[in-house]
Amino acid sequence: MYFARRALLAVLAVLFLTLPATAQDKFITVASTTSTEQSGLFKHLLPAFTRASAIEVRVVAVGTGQAIKLGEKGDADVLLVHHKPSEEKFIAEGWGVKRLEVMYNDFVVVGPDSDPAKIKGITDVSAAFRKIAETKSTWASRGDASGTDLAEKEIWQALGIAVSKSGPEWYRELGQGMGPTLNTSAQLPAYTLSDRGTWISFKNRGPLQIVVEGDQKLFNQYGVMLVNPAKHPHVKVELGQQFIDWIVADAGQKTIADYKIEGQQLFFPNARKQGS
């Protein structure tokens, strides 16, 4: 009995006492989107920043809508998200200090290779969406108020096609992140809108392939913002600003450009022309 109990205690002691001492003392919390995390960009980008600055970056990857909520509540120091109207509203309401553009990629429409709506090769995304609606081909929507979800909803809205979680029947709102939505789309199968980064790094494609790409409307800009210390005094202004300065400067921009999967660049740095 004593031996067994002591053995178990010893195991527990080792487990508890060898707490990782590797964590940096200085860290910031960045609320960002699933696309930047799930595409592997952060795994490539953040170690470079930590090496340069000795600041650890803790990323909470959620949809843009939720990331902005985390910023408003003060649970993050920096936001790196991709829905310009939401970001500008965040700044206008005083939750953020300043919005800087960091990088872009683009959205692609993916769908089953059987292509029931016959849209493969169309370059006008609005025309493609209209055909999907006309042929009542199954569409899988994120439905999670993420940047991708909002971008998709804007295209439907501009076409005057009413879609929501209550229908029409061919329109399926999943309420999930990009990866799970692609997993589901491959099974249904359905058309869906994905950011290119997540798509390139996604492994369970099934019958899905890119059907529409290259339209100006599919441009996907990422912005970075420091949460306003006037609203949340505990925000790590100095460390957060160091991260922002680094990511929009040459070092960060080059690291973003260097990230490739199978030779394809996933994100394109464009911090040069700084807007508001």
């Binding site: 995390e37 997993n183 369970n204």
Partner: peptide
Amino acid sequence: GGNIAGVTRVMTTTIALETSKGDL
């Protein structure tokens, strides 16, 4: 926890993440 790599990432949240990435 936020599923932060190296801080709050545990087995179940890692499994959820890898499923999201399609690496079944």
